[in-house]
């Protein structure tokens, strides 16, 4: 018996979200009194693979097969499930990131495993029963889901844990899953990465603004603050709907869900659908002229004031803080 983490690589590097999944797997293995191993599909250096050891993985099974260079949910599901079966894993842990969201349910069906999607904390293990908490109703409540199947699949919501990096290294062993060319049905044609900015869903700090900014020409100060802080920028739907900001910045129930350490909301009223995408942030700061804005109810820190005065001051104060 073991706990198996799926660690995803992009351009030879293990994704940040996968280190978190590895850490989650290692902690779960501690709770279950067993060890945590990992499976990696596609090219990566031995050094990169061994670095999973710093998060508690003892051994990495590496399928160094060029066909895995791009994410293909069908072929990946076969390979990860085979790893789980071959290496005696009773729990498989993935990140609830864009690819994990599709891969995890496929793996669960292959293994006929109970699947807990988007777990936000470590599980409770009692005999064959595993229980884990996750946010439901768009963050308005939490559900504890339980499963007692022989094999179990868990996808951990990104930014749920603060992985602690140790000094261990993992051993690496080759793995040749039985996937045929016919299992690969996805061909990547092009990739369009936003350059020069922090990806919103991976950001630790997010600066977001809404209709209170009056017009797209006023976003300069938001971008400047984000740049100073190394934060990603986001916006409300009201703003992306009228094309003041690009759609990939829209957060909320119908946009992206973010879970940064710090979410700064400027000139956003805090409608329930907006909060649904941001209420899992660790700390929320709200800047709004209206003391009655609903967002203050979800805030940790608030400034009742005009964004056009407060944000420039905040940039200045942040610069001072950084220089100190």
């Amino acid at each position: 018996m073991s706990v198996l983490a799926f660690a995803e690589v992009a351009e030879g590097k293990i994704k940040k979200a996968s280190f978190e999944a590895a850490y989650y797997a290692a902690k779960t293995a501690e709770l279950a009194g067993t060890e945590a191993v990992a499976v990696v599909l596609g090219a990566a250096s031995n050094e990169e693979l061994a670095s999973l050891g710093a998060y508690g993985i003892t051994k990495v099974y590496h399928a160094n097969d060029a066909r895995f260079a791009n994410f293909d949910s069908k072929a990946y599901a076969k390979a990860v499930s085979e790893a789980a079966n071959s290496f005696g894993a009773s729990i498989v842990v993935l990140s609830f990131n864009p690819s994990g969201k599709l891969l995890a349910p496929r793996v669960a069906v292959r293994l006929k495993a109970g699947y807990i999607a988007g777990a936000g904390e470590l599980p409770i293990i009692e005999g064959t029963k595993l229980t884990a908490g996750k946010n439901v109703y768009s963050g308005k409540a939490k559900a504890y889901l339980e499963t007692s199947t022989d094999k179990k699949v868990l996808a951990v919501s990104p930014n749920s844990l603060s992985p602690v990096k140790g000094s261990g290294t993992a051993s690496v062993e080759a793995f040749s899953p039985a996937v045929s060319d016919a299992d690969f049905g996805t061909v990547v044609k092009s990739v369009d990465k936003l350059t020069g900015s922090v990806p919103l869903t991976e950001a630790d700090l997010v600066v977001s603004a809404g209709r209170g900014l009056k017009g797209p020409e006023n976003w300069g100060m938001i971008e400047e603050l984000a740049k100073e802080m190394g934060a990603a920028t986001a916006c409300s739907r009201a703003v992306s709907d009228v094309d003041w900001r690009p759609h990939h910045e829209h957060v909320g129930q119908t946009g992206f869900t973010v879970k940064p350490n710090l979410y700064i909301a400027v000139g956003i009223s805090g409608a329930i659908q907006h909060l649904a995408g941001v209420n899992q942030s660790k700390v929320i700061v709200v800047i709004n002229t209206d003391p009655e804005a609903p967002f203050f109810k979800a805030a940790d820190y608030g400034i009742v004031g005009d964004a056009f005065e407060v944000v420039p001051k905040l940039i200045e104060e942040y610069k001072k803080f950084k220089a100190a």
């Binding site: 669960a108 006929k112 495993a113 109970g114 699947y115 807990i116 229980t131 908490g133 439901v136 308005k140 409540a141 939490k142 559900a143 504890y144 889901l145 339980e146 499963t147 199947t149 929320i284 709200v286 203050f296 109810k297 979800a298 805030a299 940790d300 820190y301 608030g302 400034i303 009742v304 004031g305 005009d306 005065e309 407060v310 001051k313 905040l314 200045e316 104060e317 001072k320």
Partner: peptide, 26 residues
């Protein structure tokens, strides 16, 4: 079914917002 809901939980209480004056951003 392979999973079930053991229980639900509502957030314990509304957050307490700490206010900072607009002229004291530092």
């Amino acid at each position: 079914a392979l999973t079930k809901v053991a229980s639900f939980e509502l957030p314990s209480k509304a957050k307490e917002c700490k206010y900072v004056q607009a002229d004291n951003v530092g």
